[in-house]
């Protein structure tokens, strides 16, 4: 099992380096981007026209008058002391915001990935088994359609049908488990079709392998052999895709959260970016970075689980 340790060690080291890298990058980008948090804060009510002196005062209080490098290291130092910062805009502890918002985004993303897996898996299998059938052709056509439609449009259409029309689900807000269904669906619909296609292709490739032939030679019906022998091998690529999509979903939840009024990380970071709330943006990048790294790790571990040949050191 030495490969397992290797995998873990690699993830740890790469992880730390990645986190450092992304936080530096986002810090730089935030400071380079046009716009000024001092002006954003002072002008947030849409009434006050800040004077240059006022702006200066605010800049000093936020530490913006120091060099970018100095600011970054201050932030880093603060981080190591366990303080993730205070929001420029609301003056509240970012920790509080995160604790409230992370569960929302994570739950939403988990539900979305669950939809993704629960549909792409059986559907991919079904289509591979019924290649060239009417359903297969229909689906392949639909794939292009869904991939082209932007996420927010899907969201609005779903709301129109299920919330306004059928009144089955709430249009927005966070009131219990049903609130996440439409947003999760909106997020996952586009990827659903793509991943199903990949799985279908991988399965078809697996059907042509010699080990699959040998399985059939033992008298296993096609479907049985498809699930037991073809599927685990086909899953390898799909697993990585799922992991990537999970990350995309985590990041892309911002649009869905805005439309569906879900107070998650995405909505928060959009607000923070608009108001140049540097500490908030940094915290977001950090949290997302950690979440992504965790997902990569899980995917790698799952790969080890389903592909035994990865377990032995090469």
């Amino acid at each position: 099992m030495t490969n397992l340790l290797r995998v873990l060690a690699r993830h740890l080291i790469q992880g730390v380096l990645t986190l450092l890298g992304i936080t530096v990058l986002s810090f730089l980008l935030g400071h380079i981007a046009p716009g000024d948090p001092a002006y954003a804060i002072l002008g947030s009510d849409g009434v006050t026209v800040p004077t240059e002196e006022q702006v200066q005062v605010v800049r000093e209080s936020l530490g913006l008058d120091r060099s970018v490098v100095e600011q970054y290291f201050l932030w880093l130092g603060q981080l190591f002391r366990g303080n993730i910062g205070v929001s420029f805009m609301t003056n509240r502890l970012i920790e509080q915001e995160l604790l409230a918002r992370i569960p929302v985004t994570v739950q939403l993303s988990l539900l979305a990935i669950t939809f993704l897996v629960l549909t792409s898996l059986p559907l991919g299998l079904f289509l591979a088994l019924h290649k060239d059938s009417l359903l297969d052709h229909l689906f392949l056509g639909l794939t292009s359609l869904f991939s082209a439609v932007p996420g927010f449009l899907v969201a609005l259409v779903l709301i129109l049908i299920f919330a306004e029309g059928l009144r089955l689900l709430p249009t927005s807000g966070l009131n219990g488990p049903t609130s996440l269904i439409l947003p999760a669906l909106a997020i996952s619909l586009g990827s659903m079709t793509q991943i199903t296609r990949v799985l279908r292709a991988e399965l078809l490739a697996a059907f042509g392998t010699e080990y699959f032939q040998s399985a059939r030679a033992k008298g296993f019906p096609f479907r049985f052999a498809a699930v037991k022998h073809a599927l685990p091998n086909a899953m390898s690529s799909v697993l990585t895709l799922w992991g990537n999509y999970f990350i995309a979903i985590l990041g892309g939840s911002a649009v869905a959260e805005s439309i569906f009024a879900l107070p998650g990380l995405g909505q928060w970071v959009l607000k923070s970016i608009n108001s140049h709330d540097y500490p908030a943006i940094q915290a977001y990048v950090l949290v997302m970075g950690v979440l992504c790294l965790m997902i990569f790790l899980v995917v790698d571990l799952l790969q080890l689980a389903i592909q035994p040949r990865l377990r032995r050191a090469s």
Partner: peptide, 15 residues
């Protein structure tokens, strides 16, 4: 509810 469309939807659906 940050999204204007959501607010309109919510009105129409009676929420």
């Amino acid at each position: 509810m940050p999204s204007a469309d959501s607010r309109a939807s919510a009105l129409r659906s009676g929420e």
